[in-house]
Measured scan of single mutants.
Amino acid sequence: PEDLERKVRELQKNGVSPEQIEKILRRDGVDEREVQELVKKVS
Results as ranks from 00 to 15, higher is better:
L38M: 10
Q20T: 08
S43K: 13
E19I: 06
E5M: 11
K13R: 11
V30H: 13
E22I: 15
Q36M: 11
E32V: 06
D28G: 06
R9Y: 09
P18N: 10
V30Y: 15
R27H: 11
S43C: 14
R9N: 04
K23Y: 11
V42P: 05
V30G: 02
R33K: 13
R9T: 04
D28S: 09
V39K: 03
K13Y: 07
V35C: 03
V42A: 10
R27A: 15
D3M: 07
R33V: 09
P18K: 13
P18M: 15
K40W: 14
P18D: 08
R6Q: 12
D28N: 07
Q36W: 07
R33T: 09
Q12H: 15
K40Q: 11
D3G: 08
V16C: 10
S17A: 09
V35W: 08
V8G: 00
G15Y: 02
G29V: 02
L25K: 00
K40A: 13
V8S: 01
Q36K: 11
K7Q: 06
V39A: 03
G15V: 01
V16H: 13
D31R: 03
V30D: 01
R6T: 11
V8C: 03
Q36Y: 08
N14S: 12
R26C: 04
L25D: 00
D31K: 04
R27N: 12
P1T: 13
L25C: 02
K41R: 10
L4G: 01
L4C: 03
S17L: 07
D28F: 14
K41P: 05
E32F: 06
E22V: 15
K7I: 11
P18I: 15
K41Y: 09
E2Q: 12
E19D: 10
V30K: 02
V8T: 01
E10F: 11
D31M: 05
E19K: 08
V30I: 10
Q12S: 13
L38H: 03
G15F: 03
Q36C: 05
L4V: 05
V39H: 02
E2D: 12
K23A: 14
V30A: 07
G29R: 01
I21G: 00
L11R: 00
K7D: 02
E37I: 09
V35Q: 02
E19H: 07
R6P: 02
Q36L: 10
R9I: 08
E5A: 10
G15I: 00
D28K: 06
L25I: 03
V16W: 13
K41F: 08
K23D: 13
V8F: 06
R6I: 07
E5Y: 13
